[in-house]
Amino acid sequence: MIALLFRDLRLAVRAGGGFGLGLAFFLLVAVIVPLGVGPEPATLARIAPGILWVGALLSCLLSLDRIFALDFEDGSLDLLATSPLPMEGAVAVKALAHWLVTGLPLVLAAPVLGVLLNLPLPGYPWLVISLALGTPALSIIGAFGAALTVGLKRGGLLMSLLVLPLYMPTLIFGAEVVKRGAAGMTVATPLALLAAITAGALALLPFAAAAAIRVNLR
């Protein structure tokens, strides 16, 4: 399992792995939105929590198809499926690798982009906390979507169509945490619900994703 994690990280970081693309996309979202809606600080401050969460979600979506598609194309997935690694474990590890190279940088970069979007000061800790709690759910839900579409040519668009509805509860609670945090309100309820979704998704979705991969390899 550890070996798989290190291999995936190594593949992501080396040339052609697409590491950092998600981060660049996140930055672009934070730049494009003010250009679209205008520079008034009050407007930006109001929409910043939502934009930051939507941006993080879209950047996550961008790199999902790499989780399994490359391994499927070069035959590694067949070989992994016949190896002693349980497929559920492989899915969880691959989602973890995806989070480490996509989700974690987003969490760390978010405060900087918060400045660009004029996020009110009390919102920063909650922005980081909510993304840290919520992006693992985005990775594992995305891994499930990638597993469903792994055998398909041009499955990327279909995967977005499948994954985005599944992202909605995470997005709602995540953005709500930041919104309330920025307004100085108590965040306990949405934060607990966000954590619950992440915990539930991490516990159950590897099984669904592994089942989907087995079906697709058949």
Binding site: F144, P165, L166, M168, P169, F173, E176, A208
Partner: peptide, 20 residues
């Protein structure tokens, strides 16, 4: 598999938007 997972998430969404 999608129908099962989707049901859970559709249900969650239902309550999430109530909250929202």
């Amino acid at each position: 598999v999608l129908a099962i997972v989707g049901s859970v998430f559709a249900f969650l969404s239902r309550y999430a938007v109530l909250f929202w």
